[in-house]
Computed example of a mutant assay.
Amino acid sequence: MEWTDDAIVLSARPFGDTAALVVLLTREHGRHAGVLHGGQSQRYRGVLEPGGQVTVRWRARTADQLGNWTVEPVRSPAGLYLDDALRLAAIVSAAALMDAVLAEREAHPGLYDATLALFSALDLDIWPAVYVRWEVGLLEEVGFGLDLSQCAGTGQPAGHLPGGNPNDQLAYVSPRTGRAVSASAGEPYRDKLLPLPGFLIGLGFNGGGEEDVAAGLRLTGHFLERHVFAQRHAEVPPARQRLVERYLRLNGLPAAEPQES
Rank of each mutant, 00 (worst) to 15 (best):
V92G: 01
F144K: 11
H160R: 15
Q42Y: 05
A215L: 02
V74F: 07
V136M: 00
P197G: 04
L200D: 06
R232L: 15
R61W: 02
A256K: 09
V173C: 09
A158Q: 11
A239E: 15
P128D: 03
L243T: 12
E2M: 12
A129S: 14
S93F: 05
S149D: 13
V101L: 14
V71G: 06
V132P: 02
S184A: 12
L24A: 13
G67M: 03
K192R: 15
S184W: 06
A63C: 00
V35M: 08
E141L: 04
L138T: 09
D113K: 06
H222T: 04
A185H: 01
A90T: 14
E245A: 15
V47M: 12
D83T: 10
A20Q: 14
Y81I: 04
L196Q: 07
T115M: 11
V22I: 11
N206G: 07
A103M: 13
A185W: 00
I8W: 12
H222A: 00
P197M: 00
A94G: 14
Y131N: 10
A171N: 05
L48A: 07
P128E: 00
N165F: 03
R57C: 11
G16I: 05
A158P: 06
T220D: 04
Q259S: 08
H227P: 04
L148I: 05
P162I: 08
Y131D: 07
L139K: 07
H29S: 14
R57P: 06
T154C: 12
Q53G: 06
A152M: 09
G163M: 03
E140L: 01
R176I: 11
N206C: 03
P254F: 12
T115Q: 15
I201P: 01
G39I: 04
F15K: 07
W3Q: 14
L219A: 02
P238V: 13
R232I: 00
H108E: 13
A185P: 02
A215T: 02
E72W: 12
V54I: 13
V92R: 14
Q169H: 08
G164T: 01
L66V: 13
D212F: 04
V132T: 09
F119K: 08
R133V: 10
R249W: 11
A234I: 03
V54S: 10
L118S: 04
A107T: 12
F205M: 07
P175H: 03
P238C: 03
L200F: 05
G198Q: 00
G30M: 02
L25I: 12
S11N: 12
V71S: 14
L203F: 09
L170V: 00
D5C: 12
E210A: 15
L161D: 14
H32V: 14
G155W: 02
D99S: 11
R176E: 15
G216C: 05
M98Y: 09
G204N: 06
Y81T: 00
G153T: 08
A180R: 05
P157C: 01
L148W: 03
P128K: 03
L138H: 10
L146H: 06
G79V: 04
Q65H: 12
